[in-house]
Simulated scan of single mutants.
Amino acid sequence: MPELPLTPADLDAVLAPLPSARPLPARAYWDEDVFAFEQAEIFGRSWLCVGREDEIARPGEWLLAPLTPAGVVVLRGADLEIRAFHNVCRHRAATLLDGPCGRLAHLECPYHGWTYELSGALRAAPHAPPGFDRGAHGLLPARAGALFGFLFVTLDPGAPPLESAIGEAPPWLSRPGLRSLRRGRRVEYEVAANWKLCVENFQESHHFPRVHPALERLTPCDDAVSWGRGGPWLGGVMDLAPGADTVSTSAAPGARPLIVPEAERRRVRDAMLFPGLLTSLQPDYLLTYRLAPRAPDRTLVIADTYFHPAAFTKGFDPGDVFTFWDAVNREDRAICERQQRGIRAPGYTPSTYAMVEDGVHAFDCIVARRYLSALRARTA
């Protein structure tokens, strides 16, 4: 297990009640050993969202999830089961697939032609020695599953089952109707900041007036209310401002059908699933952000926007949504990168949480508990 250069005292300070709590130490956001620890003990042991079920709806459809340097292939088998495999040939370790997604009848290594069934079983191994046991050399599996329309993978064979690990999700995400949403766009970008800064930024809205004035006009931060029940989910609810019917440059959904009940059409509901799935349910679309840490100061963000399937008719143009969130995401990226540059200043130590940062504190407490659990396991 990688060393964690933090002490129980550092972490107990985070777990104090909000008025007296102290944020995570600065080195938690830039130290290589902390990052290695998180990769092994947090991202390596959690169920991680890798996309939506509709991306692999048909047999043979696959996507490549950036969970390891080689990636993990998630596919729909001929029997309609969802499976995941490390994107590595069992012969000489060449990666099997490139690109984000596709459809195939089998997997074939581009190096020497070893071929695998959609089940992961080795079908052909050219020039293998006599008596070679193909049955013992299938693709290396990872555990996969689906919940609420989301696809999940864990790299930990000993992780709890998906449903028990995910726990009680926010009720607005577990509605059956959301499973049928269709993706309108995907954008990928890197943030030159630690992944925890990206989540903390998502967990509070009192930066809106200074960083996102356009967003503040549509969803005033004073109306934000946090949600959480002690599990891996944290959320918040905000009301739309008078005169706004959705969050976009037009502030109107136009012909886009609602994806929430009529009684909830004037609310925005955000939720984070620890460690790296961020969601925002708007009246007429769903935003998701998946975080893939690349280095202590570098995070890949995969941002998707989903709409009601009935929205996809001739002339469908959600440009008012895309333009608005492109601007907001740029603003968030810039402010997180500003934090990352400052957090390594000699002598800097975090001071306190603002009293409206209960969502940030709740997230940091999850992180601190994971750190402490591993520290105690090491010394037991």
Rank of each mutant, 00 (worst) to 15 (best):
L234N: 11
D317A: 07
H112R: 09
D12G: 05
R27D: 08
D317L: 05
R290T: 09
P283Q: 05
A84V: 04
D133P: 08
S351T: 13
P170H: 14
G177H: 11
D364A: 14
W62L: 03
M238I: 05
I56S: 02
W233G: 10
P220C: 07
E264V: 07
L147Y: 05
A224Q: 10
A105S: 04
L155P: 01
A192E: 13
E55L: 10
A251T: 03
T299G: 02
D320Y: 00
H112T: 07
H137V: 10
Y189I: 04
D304S: 11
M238N: 07
E53T: 09
P170K: 06
F43M: 06
V50D: 05
V360F: 07
L63V: 15
R330I: 11
T323G: 03
S46V: 02
P157L: 07
L258G: 12
A310Y: 02
P346S: 14
P170N: 14
R103W: 05
S174R: 15
L155H: 00
L278Q: 13
C365I: 05
T352L: 12
K196I: 09
N201L: 05
P69D: 12
R267Y: 01
E168I: 15
H212Q: 14
V211I: 15
R370E: 15
A144L: 05
V268I: 10
F312Q: 02
P296F: 02
L173V: 14
D320V: 07
Y285S: 03
M272C: 12
L218I: 13
L140T: 11
L173R: 10
A136E: 14
V74G: 10
A124F: 08
E108V: 12
R90V: 10
P275A: 01
L181Q: 08
S226M: 14
F363Q: 11
T249E: 07
C89H: 04
V191K: 02
L48D: 02
A263G: 10
L173H: 10
E81R: 14
S20G: 06
R229F: 14
D364Q: 15
R183Y: 02
A377Y: 01
T7V: 05
R298C: 09
Q282N: 10
P220F: 02
L96D: 01
D297Q: 13
L215D: 02
G230R: 11
A310Q: 11
G319K: 01
R52S: 14
C198D: 03
Y289V: 09
V237F: 00
P23T: 04
A146K: 06
S248Y: 04
A374T: 08
L162I: 13
D133L: 08
F85K: 04
V72W: 00
E200C: 12
L4N: 01
T154Y: 00
G167L: 10
R338W: 04
L64S: 02
L118T: 04
G158I: 00
L122K: 06
P275K: 00
T288Q: 11
L118M: 13
S119W: 04
A241V: 03
A169D: 11
D79Q: 10
F202E: 01
A136T: 07
E163G: 09
Q203D: 07
V268H: 06
R182E: 08
C336R: 01
A263F: 04
T288W: 02
Y348R: 12
N329R: 12
L147V: 11
A327Q: 15
L162V: 07
L75H: 06
F312K: 01
A165V: 07
